[in-house]
Design a protein around this nucleic acid. Structure first.
Lengths: 182, 182
DNA sequence: TATTGTTATACTCTATAACTATA
DNA sequence: TATAGTTATAGAGTATAACAATA
């Protein structure tokens, strides 16, 4: 986690009555097991974010995410981008204003339906995306390099199983952005 | 984003010769291995974020993170909270204004040094934190429930090894927030 | 009329710089 | 003087609502 600071008071994290969103399957899986997974997941998220630090030019996390979405599809309509980001069209439009101003994406109208706006990466955007991918591979590789080949093998097997379990429990949810819609 | 960088580019995003953040250990670890880890990491991050959806009241991701930080330490000075969030004091102060207005935290001056402001969770903040923890346990538990006990055992072992490797490669970095410091 | 996107407005989140209060 | 925090100001990021253009 983030806590490089020693003192932990930690309020009792588990004293509330289950309101009602996640089903809570704690009865089936030992609590210490989920706790261990939680801890590593947090650590992994932190590790993952490290790759974004110091990118040139300095792009905000949100803009980076939009660039990734566009890169993933090659080209997206503005509405498609909004959907992919879990945001609404107007937010995506404003975001594109800034991305375009930063020279990372290009907007052009579609020939088929002139109401649609196609968003794609500019050359600079492509370079940014490539650099980001390179860095992510690097940070992950750095950690894996600390492990023995045998450990890496076991990790891959376990992670693959975990990934399958994730897909089994969560269909295909969008990547909610700043949705404060409670 | 507030970008200390006034705006644009000027710098190429990355065609980029390794700027100097990740050393790149690709030569030592097979590319497909890192790719597999990357994929699961992305999936895990998505899974992790699911627990934050629909919380009552609707708290922004940033505010939630601040609540978690305060909960983790029990009580923090405003400066300590800022540090923990990877933000500067003024940002943390404004964030606390909103958190206090939302009834999630309480600010009080310290007796020892009256310049310091101690931030701690209100009862409502404690309840929110408890609920968040419960939900996280639930979403992780939901995925783990899809796996056999044997698979879970292997996962825990592999994850523990991975966690150790993470700690070995990354000492203790702060949880950079909106730091777009390139 | 329905769909796609943009603009107007308002709020959160963040940073820099200037300021107050305490040590 | 140095430290802890706040306030002033400005720009990014987001949503709701009203609007324009195209189908």
């Amino acid at each position: 986690m983030t806590q490089r600071r020693p003192r932990l008071p930690a309020g009792d994290p588990g004293g509330a009555p289950p309101p009602g969103v996640p089903p809570a399957a704690d009865t089936e899986v030992p609590g210490d097991v989920t706790a261990a997974v939680e801890r590593v997941l947090s650590e992994a998220a932190l590790l993952w974010s490290r790759a974004d630090q110091g990118l040139e030019p300095a792009v905000s996390p949100i803009q980076l995410r939009a660039v990734e979405a566009v890169a993933r599809f090659g080209r997206l309509t503005l509405g498609g981008l909004a959907e992919e980001l879990g945001a609404i069209p107007s937010s995506a439009s404003r975001l594109c204003d800034r991305l375009e101003a930063a020279g990372l994406v290009v907007r052009e109208s579609a020939q088929a339906d002139r109401r649609e706006i196609i968003v794609r990466l500019s050359d600079q955007g492509e370079r940014l995306q490539a650099e980001l991918t390179r860095r992510r591979r690097a940070v992950v590789g750095e950690v894996l390099a600390q492990m023995s080949p045998a450990s890496r093998g076991r990790l891959i097997d376990a992670l693959t199983e975990f990934g399958l379990a994730c897909e089994r429990s969560e269909p295909g949810l969008p990547g909610a952005l700043g949705s404060r819609s409670a």
